[in-house]
């Protein structure tokens, strides 16, 4: 299983085009922020201390959330490609259990998603430092790493269910492009959730990646929020946090860090169960 997972890693990282496309949504997000959204959001807010640091942290949290989905999705592309090219026949004709092969795909995809999150986190940290912010504290970094793993597990379980329906690389590539594009909207990453209509806000609150983004925001924006709103009333801070999707308003009250963590854990459990049910149904 480990050897097979290693093979999947090699195949993924040597396919430069696949690697690029799994990061495409991230690149789009960076470009949108640099050329368009960054200025737009800054103009929409009054001047306050650490404003740039705060907004950069907000977008970097979104980038981390997107990375946890798109790179895991791209990594599962190896499994779809093997199915598409019938490479799996060579594995099935070998004395290795299908469950081991499958576990190898899952393990490598989760590892790739997590590793890419760590790379993005490192770059984000350096970027924050050079753009006038502060380096993340060690405890914050550990928490972000934990959230990255949780996000990858949750998105991995959703993707697992999705890829069980794809048998051709072309269909999977098309679906990946659509998912990558929609992700920014569905997770409230392109535009702050408070600027969107109520029905869209409801959809976003249900979407698990939104909770990943919220968790990343809570951790990345903690210091700049303290700096920016040091003298502001609690209500103003809460209003800003709800508007920016740091927390979500659910049943009239603000969601908590624990709620988002449990939501992601629940997502991982429910989608893994659904996947196993689909596989059992397909076998019969």
């Amino acid at each position: 299983m480990l050897a097979f997972a290693r093979r999947n890693l090699l195949v993924y990282f040597r396919d430069k085009a696949a690697l690029f496309f799994s990061l495409l949504a991230v690149f789009i997000l960076i470009a949108l922020y640099v050329f368009f959204l960054g200025d737009l959001m800054a103009e929409g807010l009054p001047d306050f201390p650490a404003k740039s640091w705060l907004l950069t942290s907000w977008i970097l949290a979104g980038i981390l959330a997107v990375t946890s989905v798109t790179t895991t999705l791209g990594a599962f592309g190896v499994m779809v490609e093997d199915r598409s090219t019938h490479t799996y026949l060579d594995f099935y004709a070998s004395p290795i259990k299908r469950s081991s092969l499958f576990a190898g795909y899952v393990m490598s995809s989760i590892f790739i998603g997590f590793l890419m999150c760590l790379v993005v986190l490192f770059i984000a940290n350096v970027f924050l430092f050079f753009s006038g912010g502060e380096l993340l504290a060690f405890t914050q970094l550990l928490k972000i790493i934990g959230v990255s793993l949780l996000s990858v597990l949750a998105s991995g379980s959703m993707i697992l269910l999705l890829v069980s329906f794809f048998t051709t690389s072309n269909a999977f590539a098309a679906a990946s492009t659509v998912i990558g594009t929609l992700l920014g909207f569905l997770a409230g990453i392109y535009i702050p959730i408070g600027n969107l209509p109520a029905y869209l806000q409801t959809i976003i609150k249900f979407f698990p990646t939104s909770h990943s983004a919220a968790l990343f925001r809570q951790l990345l924006m903690d210091r700049p929020l303290q700096e920016a709103f040091s003298n502001a009333p609690i209500a103003v801070i809460e209003d800003f946090q709800l508007n920016m999707g740091v927390f979500f308003e659910i049943n009239g009250s603000s969601s908590s860090l624990l709620f988002s963590v449990l939501y992601l854990l629940g997502t991982a459990f429910v989608f893994s169960f659904l996947f196993l049910t689909v596989m059992r149904w397909k076998r019969t």
């Binding site: 050897a3 093979r7 396919d15 060579d90 070998s94 004395p95």
Partner: peptide
Amino acid sequence: DSLLDPLLTVRENLDLRARFY
């Protein structure tokens, strides 16, 4: 059809398959 991994070297391909045994 050729079912080995095009992005891996011949040795890597053979080594992986040998591990299956």
